[in-house]
Design a protein around this nucleic acid. Structure first.
Length: 648
DNA sequence: GTTTCGGTTCTTTTT
DNA sequence: GAACCGAAAC
């Protein structure tokens, strides 16, 4: 039995070893929130709670994995049976078991963004509504998603968004109803459906709800400030019987309200659970006091929050530096030279991170790192599993395992010359909506139905499934993809992509990655939910090299580095122009985002304030410094103006 | 009727 | 880069 009292500070100890019942842990940044959760899980297991009756909901799958790994080190191997993961992941797990109750087949597919967009586009076209004046598919999906995630009425959302440019909601509703129907027909769910259906399972089927209420003796929720109403209701329902609900969060760090997160969930928690024990974690172990001073000054401007003040434990070090720069290139120069300097001081590249508001803000920085041959990791805007070639490979597996995956069929068919969307649709309807990839007759039928130019290619693809089926007892999942590469895709990729080498390497990486799964189905059931961070921490790259991290602030949530650079602190960029235009709430959330960025840093913080940016068309745009920089009391930072490159 | 190709436009944040 | 649109090519 570990000595909890010795390994935790009094605040953490109280939270980790507290009695049953509703508990709210207000954990300011860097106060050992993860540590507390880890020890709470370990404590529960040590106290005799069966691990598989504990549910730990986290913001990323990686966070759950890391916490459970650490808890295992404290409390032993049994911890591995704790249910852990994101809300989407958990809902998926329930639905893979019970989706029939809601009218889905259990092998439903999960639609990613692109697939959702193209379905909505088709609906718009079918209804004859496409025009310049009609909202684009992505916008429609945004409305739909906002309605689902904030548990609001579509009409209200439409009214709020189109207060100025009024759209008749009937057409929008028509399209979105079409989208819903099509998803049903495809036996598919989008990300929002996972959450909503997961909740509906509990709402509509008392026996299922009771089963899980009894099953989970303890429910723990991380990053509770970023839950939306759907997620909050799901948690409330799951914990309703045993009432052993422990939520951890920091209202200062609520940065996802744009996707329905409502920090009122955390604010009102003590009201909803009258006997809540509230523990505050305010002792910060992460950052030097100079950084905390900046963070505290920043967040003090946001009113209406739980009062928390970060208390420093580390000795004084040096003040964060505000650097005024001419433009993005100078900014990149500056950061590169600082990296070199800090490395000479003994920091590793993996001790440093470069954070920014939006992916495209990293452009000059990335080029500079490439030129200087400084290795970097970047979770780019495009996710690994959303890239065309990776989806191609996945569809190959999907159609092998499913007889009704229209989307996978259509994707595969369109690799073939002379086949586009229409032809793919026709063949699929002639198949009667079902296709068995390993059935020679079905393969032949498709060959006969396709245009002549497509037949050679089709036979190559079909042969892969047949071979896989025949030799399946000796083969691991990745082997199908190896055959796919050599038997078809390499030749295809060379003609289809200019950077085909990179893409083929990615598929090789995917083949490696598949080795982690029991079988193809286990992989396919969850692939749509994998994020870059998940894939990365599973080290898809076999080379674990020292590299600097480039990331959006959102993706940096929960992480920390000794050295942090924040780029593009200019009005309109960070804070983002769109956000502050949207509503008064926008500025508050941007400020919380800045707070999150600042509190990632342990030792060194550099705030970069460029004055100019070259637009895409080559014209210059001039910027004033970010309000968040101007708000910092001058005595809390060092300020330097860099005029000429080379003199840092 | 479909597919393919080439030129144009625009980047918030993500499960 | 990649999504969109219009026009050429099949």
């Amino acid at each position: 039995m570990p000595d909890f009292e010795q390994e935790l500070n009094p605040e953490q100890f109280a939270a980790a070893t507290g009695p049953d019942g509703p508990t709210l842990v207000l954990a300011a940044a860097g106060t050992g929130k993860t540590r507390t959760l880890v020890y709470r899980v370990a404590y529960l297991v040590e106290s005799g709670v069966p691990p598989d009756r504990i549910l730990l909901l986290t913001f990323t799958n990686r966070a759950a994995r890391e916490m459970l790994e650490r808890a295992r080190q404290v409390a032993g191997p049994g911890v591995g049976n704790v249910w852990g993961g994101t809300f989407h992941h958990f809902a998926n797990r329930l639905l893979r078991k019970h989706a029939r109750q809601l009218g889905y087949a259990l092998d439903y597919t999960i639609l990613d963004r692109d697939e959702s967009v193209s379905i909505v586009k088709n609906c718009t076209k079918t209804l004859g509504l496409q025009s310049k004046a009609f909202p684009k598919a992505a916008v429609l999906l945004g409305i739909h998603s906002a309605a689902v995630n904030s548990d609001a009425d579509l009409n209200d959302i439409i009214e709020a968004r189109y207060a100025e440019h009024w759209h008749d909601p009937t057409d929008i509703l028509k399209v979105l109803n079409g989208y819903t129907e099509k998803k049903r027909q495809l036996n598919a769910m989008d990300f929002d459906d996972l959450l909503l259906n997961g909740l509906n399972l509990l709402r509509q089927h008392p026996s299922i709800e009771t089963y899980y209420q009894e099953r989970f003796l303890h429910v723990l929720v991380d990053e509770y400030q970023d839950t939306n109403p759907i997620q909050a209701e799901m948690v409330d329902r799951l914990a309703a019987l045993n009432r052993n609900l422990l939520v951890v969060g920091d209202d200062f760090q609520c940065i996802y309200s744009w996707r329905g997160a409502d920090h009122r969930n955390i604010m009102s928690f003590p009201d909803r659970y009258k006997d809540t024990r509230v523990t505050k974690l305010e002792t910060n172990y992460r950052s030097v006091p100079e950084i905390l001073n900046v963070a505290n000054a920043c967040i003090a401007r946001n009113k209406g929050q739980f009062k928390k003040t970060l208390r420093a434990t580390r000795p004084a070090y040096s003040k964060p530096v505000v650097v005024h720069l001419q433009d993005g290139d100078r900014q990149a120069d500056y950061v590169a030279s600082q990296i070199a300097m800090l490395r000479r001081e003994g920091y590793k590249l993996s001790d440093m991170a470069i954070l920014y508001r939006a992916h495209y803000h990293a452009l000059e920085m990335e080029l500079m790192l490439k030129r200087s041959q400084i290795p970097y990791f970047m979770t780019s805007g495009m996710r690994f599993f959303e890239q065309a070639h990776v989806k191609d490979a996945c569809c190959m597996l999907r159609l092998y395992r499913s007889k009704s995956d229209e989307l996978a069929f259509a994707r595969i068919a369109q690799w073939l010359p002379g086949v586009g969307q229409k032809t793919a649709e026709k063949v699929w309807s002639k198949l009667g909506g079902t296709f068995n990839a390993t059935d020679p007759d079905a393969q032949q039928f498709v060959a006969d139905t396709l245009p002549a130019a497509a037949r050679t290619g089709w036979k190559k693809i079909a042969a892969i499934w047949s071979t896989a089926e025949k030799e399946t007892h000796t083969r691991v999942p990745g082997d199908i993809l190896s055959m796919f590469l050599s038997g078809f895709y390499e030749a295809y990729a060379v003609n289809a992509f200019d950077n085909f080498e990179k893409r083929l390497e990615d598929i090789q990486g995917l083949i490696q990655y598949l080795g982690k799964f029991k079988d193809i189905d286990e992989f396919l059931n969850e692939v749509a939910l994998f994020t870059n961070l998940d894939a990365e921490s599973d080290s898809m790259d076999e080379t674990e090299q020292d590299a600097i991290r480039l990331s959006t602030v959102h993706q940096a949530k929960g992480l920390e580095w000794p050295v942090v650079f924040i780029l593009w602190l200019a009005e309109g960029l960070f804070p983002s122009g769109r956000s502050i235009a949207d509503s008064a709430e926008g500025e508050l959330e941007e400020r919380r985002l800045f707070y999150v960025a600042v509190t990632r840093a342990k030792d060194e913080l550099r705030l970069c304030v460029p004055a100019m940016r070259i637009n895409r068309d080559g014209s210059p745009a001039f910027y004033t410094p970010s309000r968040f920089v101007k708000e910092i009391p001058p005595k809390l930072v060092e300020t330097s103006k860099l005029k000429r490159p080379g003199f840092y």
